[in-house]
Simulated assay, not measured.
Amino acid sequence: MSADRQLSVALVASNRYPISQPFAGGLEAHVWYLARALRRRGHRVTLFAAEGSDPNATDATLRVQPFCPSALAVGDPSAAPQRFLADHHAYLTLMTDLAAAGPGAFDVVHNHSLHYLPVAMAPALEIPMLTTLHTPPTPWLESALGVSMGVGSAFVAVSRHTAQSWRPVVRDVDVIANGTDPNDWPVGDGGTDLAWFGRLTPEKGAHVAIDVARTTGRRLHVAGPVSDRAYFEDAIAARLGDDIVYHGHLDQPALARLVGSCAATLATPLWDEPYGLVVAESLSCGTPIAGFRRGGIPEIVDSTCGRLVEPGDVDALAHAVDEAATLDRGAVRDRAVAHCGLDTMVEAYVRRYHHLIAANFAEHSRTGVA
Rank of each mutant, 00 (worst) to 15 (best):
M1T: 14
H247N: 06
W140S: 06
L38M: 05
P182H: 05
V109S: 06
N360C: 14
G295Y: 00
A280G: 04
E142R: 04
P311T: 03
Y33I: 02
P66W: 03
H134E: 12
L220C: 06
H247E: 06
A320W: 10
A324P: 07
L240E: 08
S2G: 13
G146L: 12
Q6L: 05
H112T: 00
P136G: 09
R167S: 04
D76S: 15
A290D: 01
A362E: 07
G260P: 09
A80Y: 04
L117M: 11
A24R: 15
A206T: 03
A256R: 00
A35T: 01
V212S: 01
S153P: 10
R5D: 07
A223L: 11
Y275H: 07
G191N: 09
A348W: 06
P118F: 04
A264S: 07
H221W: 10
K204V: 05
L38C: 13
R41A: 13
D343N: 06
A237T: 01
W140I: 07
P66L: 11
A10H: 04
V226I: 13
V169L: 06
S143I: 02
A100W: 00
L27D: 14
A29H: 11
G198R: 12
A267I: 05
R214C: 13
V169H: 03
A223Q: 13
S303W: 03
H364S: 15
R83K: 07
H354C: 15
R171M: 11
L308G: 07
A235K: 12
A358L: 09
H247L: 14
G179K: 14
S282H: 04
T216I: 08
E126L: 09
D302W: 01
A90M: 09
F106C: 09
T96E: 05
S78I: 15
L38E: 02
F197N: 09
V31Y: 08
A223H: 03
H134A: 04
L258E: 13
L266W: 03
D172Y: 12
G295P: 10
F48K: 01
Q65P: 01
P81V: 05
V369M: 03
S14A: 14
A237L: 08
V301L: 13
R167N: 05
G52V: 06
A324I: 11
E323R: 01
V222K: 02
V173T: 08
R218C: 11
D313Q: 09
L327V: 13
R229I: 09
A223T: 03
N178R: 13
V169W: 01
T201L: 11
G330F: 15
V45W: 10
G52A: 08
G306K: 00
T216Y: 12
H355V: 02
R39Q: 03
L117V: 01
G25M: 10
L85N: 06
P202G: 13
T344S: 15
L220K: 15
L220W: 08
L141F: 00
A359V: 02
R83D: 08
A331C: 12
P136W: 08
L72M: 03
G306L: 04
R307Q: 11
L200C: 04
L98M: 08
G102R: 00
